[in-house]
Amino acid sequence: MPKITSRSLIAVSVAIVVAAILVVVLLDRYGRNARTYGAVGAIDSPQVVRMVVESPLDAYAFWKQQGFKGRTILLIADAWERLGIVNQADIPSARPYPLRLYHIPTTFEREKLSPANFLYVAALNGITRRVVAILSQPGYDDMAAMAQRATEARIGAGELYLPHQGFPRWFTTLARFRGEKEPVLLYVNASYFRTVEPEDLYRQLKASGVATDAVILCRGGEDNRLTNLERAKLERFARLIGIPAAKNDSPAAAPAARPRQ
């Protein structure tokens, strides 16, 4: 063994510390570079993809087709859709060797994707890494009441953090929303206009300075809780951000997303 000197010990120690710093920096970069974006702008910018879709499934299909990865989804809806036990991974009662294990994200996408769980499946499949939900006041109050019973919830003034298995989910109201640091995938459900006027939403979003590369307005076609009035307001909001009236876009129209440098 070569003779150990004070200098060599210090050199190795410094090398390990430098390597540690490097690892942290590189992992941070690796994570950030894994996110994919399209052309970014304000919600009414011409370069931003904006479309009205019929169902949340269309939104999912669009995000998937565009190759979005690791994104923040800004959800705007009347209330948060809670998921039932059916959204747990299936464990078969017969488990002989060799086990028939499966990949949860692709299995969910293939067999369980629904308008109720499309955000969950988007999270499983890596489209989104965090969700920020702007809810109506009643929708937010409902979540806040539920969060009182959840051990992992953090409740602030008009803002609620309620993760699911380490997946970050923030809930707030339009009045409390202060924007996002990074470009979001904006998803607006017609249900939000049950209590809010489109002009108010437009004004507040513009004021928050939120940036995006894809705005999806969902008519929620199969949701019989929605009324024509809410859908009409959604169309009004669509016009405010520059989408022609009653235009339902094809998800294939937009250019694919790319990693952001």
């Binding site: 390990i16 390597a19 540690a20 690892v23 942290v24 992992l27 941070d28 690796y30 994570g31 950030r32 894994a34 996110r35 990865k69 690791g70 994104r71 890596g126 890494r129 965090r130 970050p168």
Partner: peptide
């Protein structure tokens, strides 16, 4: 260092060190 390296697949989902 060893500990944080085991999170590489998680970072691959777009997460930063702050997250």
């Amino acid at each position: 260092v060893i500990y944080i390296l085991t999170f590489i697949p998680w970072f691959g989902q777009g997460h930063s060190v702050g997250e």
